[in-house]
Computed example of a mutant assay.
Amino acid sequence: WALVAPQRPDWRLRLYGTGEDEAALKAQCTGLGLDGSVEWMGRTDDVEAALGGASVFVQSSRGEGFPLALLEAMASGVPCAAFDCAPGVREIVRDGEDGLLAPAGDTAALADRLLRLTGNPRLRDALGARARSGAQRFSEPEVGRRWEELFAFLER
């Protein structure tokens, strides 16, 4: 965010969640001069409302399995940028089609993806719409259908 905020002074980063690193992260935020552009939202049980107020979703984890938060954002039509840190992320986000991926751990590349999304409303709208439909690949009916296909194949 330190690479994005100076170029997008009208944007705000909302961070959801809590944890043992929260105090250190808040201190780092202050040290970087980002307090005016970062909002610490804490824990929420209303993911739908949090995503409903979002223009972009960022999955900045450096290690993930199959991140449900990313899938929830896409199902809500929120365009996403994420580190390409695991096969599960690659399975969910089709780079350039329904979201943007950056090489794992490359913060400059992730900032670039965020600048692209925050600076281009048409790109945000297009990726968000495709994300919503693409996330349906993981809907309960679709996953159930795929399991049934597998079982049918195994019975042959």
Results as ranks from 00 to 15, higher is better:
1 W>C: 15
5 A>C: 10
7 Q>Y: 13
7 Q>D: 15
7 Q>K: 12
7 Q>T: 11
9 P>C: 06
12 R>I: 08
13 L>E: 02
13 L>C: 07
15 L>N: 09
16 Y>P: 06
17 G>M: 01
17 G>F: 04
19 G>F: 10
20 E>Y: 09
21 D>F: 01
22 E>G: 01
22 E>T: 03
23 A>K: 07
25 L>K: 02
35 D>N: 10
37 S>A: 07
38 V>I: 07
40 W>A: 05
49 A>L: 12
49 A>D: 05
50 A>H: 04
55 S>L: 05
56 V>R: 06
57 F>A: 00
59 Q>H: 13
59 Q>R: 06
59 Q>N: 13
62 R>D: 00
62 R>Y: 05
64 E>M: 01
65 G>P: 00
66 F>E: 01
66 F>D: 03
66 F>C: 02
72 E>I: 10
76 S>L: 06
77 G>Y: 07
78 V>R: 08
80 C>D: 03
82 A>L: 07
83 F>N: 02
87 P>H: 02
89 V>M: 02
91 E>V: 01
92 I>S: 10
93 V>A: 04
94 R>D: 12
97 E>L: 14
98 D>M: 08
99 G>T: 01
99 G>A: 00
100 L>C: 04
100 L>Q: 09
101 L>P: 04
102 A>C: 11
104 A>T: 10
107 T>K: 08
108 A>F: 04
109 A>C: 06
110 L>D: 09
110 L>T: 05
112 D>Q: 14
116 R>A: 15
116 R>L: 15
121 P>T: 10
123 L>Y: 11
126 A>H: 09
129 A>W: 10
129 A>K: 11
131 A>T: 02
131 A>N: 01
131 A>R: 04
135 A>D: 04
136 Q>T: 12
138 F>A: 01
141 P>K: 12
143 V>M: 14
143 V>L: 14
144 G>R: 14
146 R>T: 12
147 W>C: 10
148 E>K: 15
150 L>A: 14
151 F>R: 10
152 A>C: 13
152 A>G: 08
154 L>Y: 10
155 E>N: 14
